[in-house]
Amino acid sequence: MEVETKVSHSVQWSHRRAQFFKQLKKQRVLHLFVGLGMIFLLIFSYTPMFGILMAFKEYSISSGIKGIFTSEWVGLKHFNEFVSDYRFGEIVRNTLVLSFLKVLFTFPAPILLAILLNEARNLRFKKIVQTVSYLPHFISWVVVAGIAFSFLSADIGMINKALMSLGLIDKPMDILTNADHFWGLAVGSAVWKEVGWWTIIFLAAIAGIDPTLYEAAQIDGAGRLARIRHITFQGMKGTIVVVLILTIGSILGGGLVGSNFEQAFLFGNSINNSTSEIVQTYAFKVGLRDGRFSYAAAIDLIQSIIAVILIFSSNFIAKRASGSSLF
């Protein structure tokens, strides 16, 4: 009896193996494509990871690449230094607040715009809005920072001038040079720049909804809002969850619109520094400028750990709440 089971097991197994290779052969082109992506990841994401060693060592740049292995171990010294830095609290707060604010506003915005565009009946209008809203995506942040200066400057800014001459304000607004306004500026410019681009993915999700559902709902007496709520939104839910998880995973980089570093670096100045300095810009300035690669690596590692925790917990919550998840 036992022998029989064993034999049947091994037969089953070799059968499965044969099937596996047969399938592999059938999908070899697809596997080649996957392989390409994996080689990319291996070279650009996994290989450089050995550099993490630096975070636990006293690495000096004059010792070259082999110095990463030969330099002296110092344990958590660099982590301690960052955690006990007098600005640690402020910098971590800025990173988290900026990240969460950006997700809070930039995530729902394209969903809303997609639904609005879907409801627009005038095709021409819809096309124009779509084009106008996604074009800023192609402007780089450096250019955006330049444009922002000419629009928002307290002295020569167009917006301040217009508001002043309309008598709406009696003193120019110091948007670029006030620590209280930095987060608003960052979130606002991110929404302006990326909302149209991300609308495309949600419009695609809406396009996949069967139109007969709308017709049936209409016959059943569902109004516009009811249709949006029960059909459009339900049809987008899967896409929304996947995008949300990806967003949370990269939340410390700024979520789906990214660019936390670019914004903090380009809009940041010594006046708004108390709200604009984030972990990445701090690591860049203190770590790289003076060749303190070990310290920069330690700071970045701390941030990566926070990001990993965030992606796992958001995946878990998504699974619990909606049933769909990334893994």
Binding site: A154, D155, D174, T177, L266, N269, S270, I271
Partner: peptide, 9 residues
Amino acid sequence: ILAENFAYT
């Protein structure tokens, strides 16, 4: 002097 003078990049 202008405050934003300190923000010139």
